[in-house]
Write a protein that binds this DNA or RNA. Structure first.
Lengths: 213, 213
DNA sequence: TAGATTGTTAATCGATTAACAATC
DNA sequence: TAGATTGTTAATCGATTAACAATC
């Protein structure tokens, strides 16, 4: 389906945003949109939108624009959201719980299949209908369920070693919230590091710059 | 202090990451580092690091490198982390609690001064020693305490209207977790939208691409 | 057909990298 | 002084924007 065989990361990082805007338009019942109208809503140029979409295919109709519903679905497919990759959560504290309950994994290509913690007071509890298991059951769980991805909501000091072990159990993909830039030297590993506090510091910078004037 | 008067956003977005890496090195007791060594750790080029830093000043010593402790402090100052902007949290649910407890606001230029919710079962509770107040006390609180920034952890449908009201109460800066791209037309407003699920979708894309081969 | 808007190529702009002179 | 490494300029690369022919 892709017209080009390699897509630049800056385009990829814009796809989820296109997906969100189109989903919202579709929910509002908007049938058709031109690159120009969309560009105004999203704060991009019409050129860029057409350029981006054309990395993957010609989804529009000349003289008419794009069908919102169809384009939203196409981008969902490009993102692979109809997959159902098996995810597990490591760390059922405040942050883990928030991530597990706030993200609709199902709508984003994943199913949550297991939750683990080492804190006895959390073990046995339930999050979204899934029991929190002790971390020492991780190995047998992985053998049985072969999860595709792990959400890491553990303290920063434990994450490197933990990921090491999980890689040995066959987990190759990580969504990492641990405030530590996880890098794994294996070429088949994908890590998405999320650093919420980077965004807070950037906000601090921008406020400070503004206040200088 | 800045050598150039306008700094590109791509440089700004890298500053928190420099800050984190340097903090870690300092904590490990590393005294001195060259752009080349740092570039290897961070996965950047040495050129880029020198270029980035020189937007703000000559922090290094030719023939020697950079003093880790000093450079970390300089970047902290550039980011404005020694400020103590007054922040409030709107929405004390799962996500709000996680954000409030997981971010050390104090180390990032902010102090948490108030927490608000409309859910009676949350009101009166405490998060990090701060009482959760009913949202209808927001107005009087703002008059008294003049918060600089609001962390928005509310459902996506309520955020636009809420922010509208908060702007009227004098709040100009927003850290928005509400799954909605908040845009406010006033020129003195700064919004940092955080979309964690964008990162999840990007991960889904990358996994799907990898699995194609 | 005329009007609109895409898909795509070409031009521009900005960000990254390379190179090297300055200097510790 | 020689060696190392910065600060800075110049070259390259890639991403964004502009323009326009294709076509619905």
């Amino acid at each position: 389906m892709p017209k080009r065989d390699h897509i630049s990361m800056s385009v990829v990082r814009r796809l989820p945003r296109y997906y969100r805007f189109l989903s919202e338009l579709r929910d509002k019942g908007v049938v058709r949109i031109s690159s120009r109208e969309l560009s105004i809503k999203m704060g991009l140029t019409a050129s860029q939108i057409r350029q981006d979409l054309n990395c993957f295919g010609g989804f529009g109709q000349q003289g008419y624009g794009y069908l919102v519903d169809q384009l939203q679905k196409e981008i969902g497919n490009i993102l692979g959201l109809s997959h159902s990759y098996r995810a597990i959560l490591i760390g059922a504290g405040n942050l883990g719980r928030a991530v597990a309950t706030h993200m609709s994994f199902e709508a984003r290509g994943f199913t949550m299949t297991g939750i683990f913690d080492k804190n006895p007071s959390l073990i046995g509890g339930e999050i979204r209908g899934i029991k929190v298991l002790p971390i020492d059951q991780l190995e047998s769980f992985c053998r049985q369920n072969k999860p595709d991805m792990a959400v890491l909501c553990v303290p920063r000091d434990s994450v490197a070693q933990l990921a090491e072990g999980m890689y040995a159990l066959g987990i190759k993909n990580y969504w990492n919230f641990s405030h530590y830039d996880l890098t794994i030297r294996h070429s088949d590993v994908i890590v998405e590091n999320v650093h919420m506090s980077d965004s807070l510091m950037t906000l601090c910078y921008r406020i400070s710059e503004k206040n200088k004037d």
